[in-house]
Design a protein around this nucleic acid. Structure first.
Lengths: 150, 150
DNA sequence: TATTGTTATACTCTATAACTATA
DNA sequence: TATAGTTATAGAGTATAACAATA
């Protein structure tokens, strides 16, 4: 009878995880990696961050860059390059605001169309992500996530 | 009485979030950003990814690089640079395996000591992250996260 | 032939500091 | 003085492709 190994399990056994499975940050990171991969594999042309920006512009036409940056949790300088790209792809338009330091942001017709085409793909992606959960488990997870680090 | 605006809310109102709050990936990303910031602010010298690597080596002494890379969900080429750094800091040691293509990985005394010193900081970080949740809500969240994307 | 570790390279996402134009 | 947008720059973290050593 083989004695119990003190070091690494054999090549096909899973690794011992130590305390990692009990850490929220670790579980969150693994889940997010898997979700991002599924997103990238199933949604062409737009990253998760870009979808967030387009959705917020659609829901808040004329929003300024600084407010949008705060809403998505990135620095305003980081948003500049992202908007350059979205404007170069003719998905978003910047218009000088009445406070002439600001730019208001609007979706172009092409941007709105791309977003509309993408939403069903996101819905299917979301179904795959939550495939193992019941509807009530899924809402419970959403609610719990919203209460982290108050 | 002010009529309801059709475009962006005023400068201090929160943005309308559209469908974003209902997307698991979006909520996960926001939660993880906040958690990473708290981690970086409260745990010196080690990033979340490095802690994961050190914990897995501690729990699986002699593990090979390829198996460790699979366990933490990164490419084995990505792990090489991380291990170069940890070895240069004298936290980890590589030893040629009996299968001479492989390196077995061990914590050095210094690596084990750093990890031991860091664990209480991680525990306090974890308490802050879950401060808004009861113990049973926290375990429920961990369990639900483990069931995403099969 | 297949696998392990490695290198070279590049890409994405992010922030900080300093600039300009406006307020 | 303060804020909005911008630029230059840098730093994480990551992957792909190709290679030598070994199985």
């Amino acid at each position: 009878m083989p004695r119990k190994s003190v070091s690494a399990p054999a090549g096909d056994a899973p690794l011992r995880q130590g305390l990692l499975p009990g850490l929220l940050g670790y579980r969150l990171r693994l889940a997010q990696q898997a979700i991002f991969r599924d997103f990238a594999d199933s949604i062409p042309d737009l990253s998760p961050g870009r979808v967030g920006v387009l959705v917020l512009i659609e829901s808040n036409p004329g929003v300024t860059q600084s407010r949008l940056a705060r809403a998505v949790g990135i620095d305003r300088s980081t948003l500049v390059g992202l908007l350059h790209e979205l404007e170069a792809r003719n998905l978003v338009q910047r218009r000088r605001g009445t406070d002439r330091r600001t730019n208001g942001l609007w979706l172009t017709a092409k941007g709105a169309a791309l977003l509309a085409r993408t939403l069903p793909l996101i819905a299917r992606h979301e179904e795959r992500v939550a495939a193992g959960l019941s509807a009530s488990e899924r809402s419970r997870l959403l609610a719990l996530l919203g209460r982290l680090l108050g």
